[in-house]
Structure formats: C-alpha cells, structure tokens
Amino acid sequence: MKVKFNNRDPVYVQVVRHFKEQIATGMLEQGQEVSSRRELASQLKINPNTVQRAFKEMEEQGLIYTEKNSPSKITKDEQVLHRVREELILEAVDTFVTSVRSINVPVDELVELVKEKYAADSKKQGGNIDD
C-alpha cells in the first residue's frame, strides 16, 4: 500500500480518506481484515500515533469495527458503505464543478464532453484488461 501524503492536511485525515477510496473501489471488501496499526505505520511510513488516530476516527465513522482480541475489519453495514461511495462521488463532482464553473461552459455541452471522455477512458481501460 503506497500513498502520497501532502504536508498540509492532517495525515490521519488522509489515511481515512485513503481507506474510503479503497472501500468505494472495492479494493477493500466488507468484512475484510485490515492491517494492524503497526503494519500500517510501516507500510505508509507515518507515525504510529497518527495511524492510531486514523483508526479511532474510522471506528467512530463506522468504517471499521474491532472485536475483542482480533484485527479490525471493514464494516458490513450496507448503509455506511453506500454513504462512503456517495461521499467520494459528491466530493469529486464538487471539485469538478468548481473548476469548470469559472470557464462558463453550458451544462449540456459539459455533460456531452463528460460522456465522450468517459467512453474514451473506458475503452482505454478495457484495452488494458485485454493486454
């Protein structure tokens, strides 16, 4: 697991976000065991106390759960999983809309462009799978 951290956002927030992305994309499946705090600190090359903080946050948000004496696992709560996906999509759309708004593109034209771009990218990705 490699993550590029920026220096201005709290690292624990970036770790939580990374987990959300992994959950939303299915890289981490529901009920899957996650690495221990120690392993994660080593893999991500960050302070173990920061990882601890990230785990606490994820537990509070219901992303992971920990039963006594066993490794933490990704939640099986469909509602939470759905919310994570929604949250990431909305965030991405927000960023996108903010940046294109300044160019004043009519929304229909924009939707058309998004569709084209999406189709082109999907093709590219499909090609990769065939390779």
Binding site: N7, R8, D9, P10, V11, Y12, V13, T50, R53
Partner: peptide
Amino acid sequence: SEEVRESEGKSVVD
C-alpha cells in the same frame, strides 16, 4: 505537527 495541519492547514515547513 498534526494539530497545526488540522487547525491551521499548515505544514511543519510552513
């Protein structure tokens, strides 16, 4: 360092 990122959005170098 985490607190300063959280409350002020600054890196240690900032």
